[in-house]
């Protein structure tokens, strides 16, 4: 580490007595205040402001239509077009999850199941949404493309238990995802 010696700027008398900058500051903050009150803040239009500042008034106003394609909401499990649960409980998401929100209990698929050849699926799959930080690492790491971050952002509950999404809830949020992995089809 190189040592960098900083040269403090030389201030002239006007700058030294500080009042000029102070009054300039008052003007700046007051300009913002007035603009806010008039609903003319910078970026108010793009952000669909409610008319005061740049803020959108939730929940009357929703930003659903403003959500970008890449928005990272609640993580969820998906099934493929044949209704097979894509997750094979490899537990890579459990491993990568930075806040350790995911808990998986793996199990073997019984031999009478149509997808018995896949051999493995999760018996329990729980994501603790209190812990989840919506980082999307689970989606990125999934080798089966079974877990996706959906656009759901209103994850609420009255109890801690409500905030733990179990397998059923995760498939409910996730729905079906078509295409991508064809590894387990007869074509393989």
């Amino acid at each position: 580490m190189a040592v960098v010696k900083l040269q403090r700027p030389k201030l002239n008398f006007g700058e030294k007595i500080y009042f000029g900058a102070l009054i300039k500051g008052f003007f700046l903050t007051m300009t913002h205040a007035v603009k806010t009150l008039r609903g003319k803040s910078v970026g108010a239009d793009e952000l669909a402001s409610s008319g005061l500042g740049v803020t959108m008034q939730f929940p009357e106003q929703r930003w659903d239509e403003h959500l970008p394609e890449y928005y990272r909401g609640a993580p969820a499990l998906v099934t493929d077009e044949q209704g097979r649960e894509r997750c094979v409980s490899c537990q890579l998401c459990e491993f990568i999850c930075p806040p350790k929100a995911i808990k998986i209990v793996p199990s073997e698929i019984p031999s009478d199941d149509p997808w018995a050849k896949v051999e493995k699926r999760p018996l329990e799959f729980e994501i603790d949404m209190i812990r989840c930080i919506y980082c999307g690492m689970c989606e990125e790491v999934c080798p089966e493309q079974a877990i996706y971050l959906r656009k759901d952002y209103l994850i609420t509950g009255l109890k801690r238990a409500d905030m733990v999404h179990d397998k059923k809830k995760l498939y409910e949020i996730g729905g079906t995802r078509v295409g991508l992995v064809n590894k387990w089809n007869e074509l393989k």
Binding site: T29, M30, H32, A33, K35, T36, L37, S41, V42, A44, S50, L52, G53, V54, T55, Q57
Partner: peptide, 13 residues
């Protein structure tokens, strides 16, 4: 409220 309008926000309303 005042700090909110200074910072282009709404504040407690």
């Amino acid at each position: 409220r005042f700090s909110a309008v200074i910072q282009d926000r709404v504040g407690p309303n």
